[in-house]
């Protein structure tokens, strides 16, 4: 496969944006209560400024379902998909390794531990995301600290430190699981598979803000990331501030993933396969890869969450894995023998 969309990048971007809209609207109409497209459009338009005069607001339950249940959930799914995919693209670039994921620096393991600690000590539940976030970023900064060698960030040391901290956090979580009662145990395990149910608008605004800032930072340093693929010394000799690029990319990518999983729990696979699939479509140039990954990640996660909603709330991480893994294997077989992802 030879990067079929590389030459048509702008057209592809428009096509994927259109596909995004279609996915969002279809997803809004699907669920335990069927709501026709016409009503959805009317409900949405009625909420736009100055439009309320022309479309009197729907007072019925359908309006509530759309505006307070489905819409925030679908938007959070979309934002989470974007964040995880952009984070994965960035991590794979910094580590120069197609096996890197948003969780490589311990975001997920830290997040689980934070949640487990919170549940174990019976912390007021709205504070659980804050616990997850603090532990996730705490782990990342510990790994960062360990990865500093002589004033520079050493990628191999970082990788190993991430591995060690992942083990450490997972072991501590298991210890908590061991002493927890069955109900708490179930909540903790459920968290490790992620869910978008019960999303409220505030979560959408917070993740949206972080997604915009984080993705903008990753994109701003996209060309630097490209040049770094030819080696760090070579990049320096081409005028790149390698250290700054690494720190910005790693912090932005970790933040993107940490904020999302704090609200949703761990949703795996998106941050690993979406960058892969996008690279196969548009090639490894991060200037193209990051926007395409973002849209593809959003579409993929909204689709998976819709399946989750339609199938009695199976954890969304299970769906991404069930969809993602076979697709991944398909790509693997299709590209077997070809060099370079």
């Amino acid at each position: 496969m030879n990067h079929p969309l590389k030459k048509h990048f702008k057209k592809s971007l428009v096509a994927f944006a259109a596909l995004t809209l279609v996915t969002l609207v279809i997803s809004l109409s699907l669920g335990s209560v069927h709501i026709p497209f016409k009503s959805i459009v009317e409900i949405l338009i009625s909420r736009l400024p100055y439009m309320g005069h022309y479309y009197p607001s729907y007072p019925d339950a359908r309006s509530t379902i759309i505006l307070y249940i489905r819409l925030p959930r679908i938007l959070l799914g979309f934002i989470a998909g974007i964040s995880l995919a952009v984070s994965g693209s960035s991590m794979q670039g910094v580590f120069k390794n197609p096996m890197a994921s948003p969780f490589i620096l311990g975001v997920s393991a830290g997040g689980v531990l934070g949640t487990a600690v919170g549940i174990f000590f019976g912390i007021w539940w709205p504070l659980l995301p804050l616990m997850a976030f603090i532990f996730a970023m705490g782990t990342v900064f510990t790994v960062f600290f360990l990865g500093r060698v002589k004033g520079t960030t050493d990628i191999t040391t970082l990788l190993l430190a991430g591995l060690a901290m992942n083990f450490m956090m997972t072991a501590l979580t298991s210890l908590i699981l061991f002493y927890s009662d069955p109900t708490d145990r179930m909540s903790i395990v459920a968290w490790t598979w992620g869910s978008l149910s019960g999303t409220i608008w505030n979560e959408v605004w917070i993740t949206l803000t972080v997604a915009l800032i984080g993705s903008a930072l990753v994109y701003a340093y996209a060309r630097d990331l490209n040049v770094m693929q030819t080696g760090e010394i070579s990049a320096k000799q081409l005028g790149i501030d390698v250290e700054k690029t690494k720190i910005i990319q790693l912090v932005a990518a970790s933040l993107l993933a940490a904020v999302v999983i704090s609200f949703t729990g761990i949703i795996g696979f998106v941050g690993l396969i979406i960058p892969h699939a996008s690279r196969l479509l548009v090639g490894p140039d991060h200037k193209k890869l990051i926007p395409i990954s973002a849209l593809l990640g959003g579409i993929f996660l909204v689709t998976c969450d819709t399946v989750s909603r339609m199938s009695g709330e199976i954890w969304v991480g299970v769906i991404t894995g069930l969809f993602g893994a076979p697709f991944f294997i398909y790509l693997l077989i299709r590209n077997r023998g070809e060099t370079g992802w």
């Binding site: 120069k96 060309r223 040049v227 693929q229 030819t230 081409l238 090639g283 140039d285």
Partner: peptide, 16 residues
């Protein structure tokens, strides 16, 4: 180079 950039993309990096 870890990812399959095209020859042209690598050469253009010289303009960075």
């Amino acid at each position: 180079i870890s990812f399959p950039f095209s020859v042209e993309e690598v050469v253009l990096m010289g303009r960075s």
